[in-house]
Design a protein around this nucleic acid. Structure first.
Lengths: 125, 125
DNA sequence: CCGCTATGGTCACCGTAGGAGACCAACTCA
DNA sequence: TGAGTTGGTCTCCTACGGTGACCATAGCGG
C-alpha cells in the first residue's frame, strides 16, 4: 500500500499535486525523453531522431513542460543555425531510477504480456 | 514466427512491444488502479469511489486492458445485484514496486516542482 | 544570384481519445 | 409502485495530440 499519512496528500484525490505530477512523469513521451537524456545532454533534433514517432510539436511541448517542472535544463547557443541543448537537472536525475525500473519491468514482462493477450483474445474471440 | 528478441527491444522504436506496454502501465489511470488493488481486491464501485475523477467508461476500459495484459483478475459473482471483484495477478504484483517508486517520487518532489513552476512562470510571465 | 539544406521552432487544421450523462437489466426493499 | 443498487453500455461533444505548412538565418553548390 502507498501510505501518505505524513502529509495530507492523497494521490487518489484530484486536488493532489502529486497526482498531476504523476500524470506528467508517467506520460509516454516524458519517459522516453528522460531515458534518452540519461545518457547525457542532447540536441533537439537528436531527440527527435532517437525517439521514433514523436511529433515536433509534442517534443517541444513536452520539453517545455519538463523545463517548467525543473527536470530538464535548456541551453541555447546563439550560433547559426541556432543550437539548443537539453540536459537533466539534478532533480531530473533523481527521476531516472524510478523510470528505469519501469522500463526494465516492461522489457522483462514483454513476453508474458503477449502470452496473456493471446490467451485473452483466444477465449474472447 | 514473430520474434521479440533483443533486436526489437529498443524502447525508442515504435515497433517495440515494450514501448506499448510502457504506455499502458504508465497510464494515469493504470497507476492509480494498481495502487488501489495493492491493498487487496476491490469491487468496481469501490475503485470508482476511491479514484476521484475517473469516469465509469475509463474505469471499465482500463480494467479490461489490465485483464487482457494478465495484470488483473476479474471475478464475477452471479448474485443480485451482480458483484465483480478485481485483484492483482502474480504478474500484476510485480508491477507494484516500480509504480510505488514512481508514486513515492511524485510525493517527495511535489514541493520542489511547485517551486520550479513558480520560478519558471515568474521569469516567463 | 538562386535554390537547397539544416536548425529549432510556431501555427492552423483535423481526427480521435476521453469526459459527461442517459439508459439498462435484474432484483430488493419500503 | 417506485426508488435504489451494481456494473456496465451507448451517445454525444470537447480537448488533446498528430500532420504538414511556414519562418528566420546562413552556409554551400552551381
Amino acid at each position: 500500500m502507498v501510505t501518505t499519512s505524513a502529509t495530507s496528500s492523497d494521490l487518489y484525490r484530484t486536488d493532489c499535486a502529486a497526482r498531476q505530477i504523476l500524470d506528467r512523469v508517467g506520460d509516454r513521451w516524458t519517459v522516453l525523453i528522460i531515458g534518452v537524456l540519461s545518457d547525457g545532454s542532447a540536441r533537439f533534433s537528436q531527440l527527435r531522431r532517437r525517439i521514433e514517432g514523436i511529433s515536433q510539436k509534442m517534443l517541444t511541448q513536452t520539453l517545455r513542460g519538463l523545463e517548467r517542472d525543473g527536470l530538464v535544463h535548456r541551453t541555447v547557443f546563439p550560433e547559426v543555425p541556432v543550437r539548443v541543448e537539453y540536459e537533466l537537472t539534478q532533480m531530473g536525475r533523481t527521476l531516472e531510477e524510478p523510470l528505469r525500473a519501469l522500463q526494465r519491468w516492461a522489457l522483462e514482462n514483454e513476453d508474458r504480456i503477449e502470452e496473456a493477450h493471446a490467451t485473452y483474445d483466444h477465449r474472447a474471440q
